[in-house]
Design a protein around this nucleic acid. Structure first.
Ligand SMILES: [Mn+2]
Ligand SMILES: [Mn+2]
Ligand SMILES: [Mn+2]
Ligand SMILES: [Mn+2]
Lengths: 219, 219
DNA sequence: AATAAATTTTAGACAAATCTAAAATAAATT
DNA sequence: AATTTATTTTAGATTTGTCTAAAATTTATT
């Protein structure tokens, strides 16, 4: 099964959406891929014809087992390249997404396996998202939203809820990274903001919006 | 100036051909790119419209300064990736071409510069071909065809005349690589074959065809 | 110089991916 | 239940890259 770059972006988009919404709608995918609903419908027919998608007119859609398997492999490539860019080429973690969006489409099995080995079989990408292994297996991620972390409980940032550059810019400014140790010191009901402490640093404030975009595991 | 992957492959093909034939013909390019002459003509018009190509109907064509500059950059990316694949990912030098053919189309300036630095600014790719620098400057390659190397003159293989896998397979078999030291011991007029010696090894025979595909510099 | 052969271009068609505008269907509201 | 609104699909057009078959042009040969 060879797919065009565009078909790959579509099934990857559907894969991400159906993690949250079991069945995906035309408008949701149109919004994610920044295309018109008409374009989405056209592609849904093609993906259905290739047996990658379960789709009935007006009824929403989700990937077949085959479609999901291919999508997971695209996600694997995307996240391996992101790891490469940050760990080997010294990119900032907020600079890698667009380039990985292109690199992910190079499907050479040999390339992916050798890259994985060269990187030391990393299990998480620079945003804390798990990298599927060569069989499509994904290390489950037991993660707690920072907004739900109990007071004075040491924890470590393990992923972010979005890759928007505005979020990543803010995190860079506050010196928060994947792996950063945090403790929540106070909660303010008025605006649901948090006061947190990073190791050996004065307490800082996080807005509700920011805290909700951060996931942690206790340590 | 943003180019499609296909436009990039076309100007790169023209660039390589015009190194040998100052002006390139439709059929030459069709044969190189494995497309029909009609497809070539279509693309020539587009490239002319983008001012990358000097082209008059039936008169052959060659790149403008701008077209050449863009082509050299594609060649730079192609060869940097080949170097990466061999030196970092342990590919064989006969396995890298196809993958580099895809990687070369990722144009991110930051990616290319960081990759170049990561690799230590290599000056030659795994086939001995020079890697253009960031300004498009190419280290000139004073190379002698092995068939013209005088007898008993120590020399080093510095590049190969083709990347065909049949050639590279044969070189692997004979343990000949970029950097291998050779001396020509005898020439046979009948079939123009050569007897050569690699360091600390018994003499072996190279056919005329093989010797003509190898370039050396004396040491 | 006339003819034949090779090369190159054009004409017309098709697949992929996209769009806009209109039509069909489903969901929400009165 | 009828109507309005939102969603989704279809119809038809456009761009990019490709092809085959036919026409135009150049080059080679008699
Ligand atoms: Mn992509
Ligand atoms: Mn990521
Ligand atoms: Mn290419
Ligand atoms: Mn090369």
């Amino acid at each position: 099964m060879t797919l065009t770059y565009t078909e790959e972006d579509y099934i990857k988009g559907i894969y991400h959406l159906q993690q949250t919404y079991n069945t995906v709608s035309t408008n949701q995918l149109a919004s994610l891929l920044e295309a018109t609903p008409a374009s989405i419908t056209d592609m849904l027919k093609k993906l259905k014809a290739k047996k990658l998608l379960n789709y009935e007119k007006y009824k929403g859609f989700h990937l077949t087992a085959e479609g999901k398997k291919l999508s997971v492999n695209i996600v694997r490539r995307h996240r391996l390249w992101e790891y490469f860019l940050v760990e080997k080429l010294q990119f900032g973690w907020d600079e890698v997404h667009e380039v990985a969006e292109e690199l992910e489409h190079i499907t050479s099995k040999k390339l992916v396996e050798k890259l994985d080995a060269f990187l030391g079989h990393p299990r998480f990408d620079p945003h804390g998202d798990p990298i599927p292994d060569n069989n499509g297996k994904i290390t489950p991620h037991i993660q707690l939203n920072l907004i739900d972390l109990p007071l004075n409980t040491p924890a470590e940032i393990c992923s972010v809820g979005s890759q928007s550059s505005s979020l990543l810019e803010l995190l860079n400014h506050k010196h928060i990274n994947i792996g950063t140790r945090v403790e929540v010191k106070r909660r303010f009901g008025f605006d649901r903001s948090l006061e947190i402490k990073l190791k050996n640093q004065p307490a800082i404030t996080l807005s509700q919006q920011l805290a909700q975009a951060l996931f942690v595991k206790t340590i």
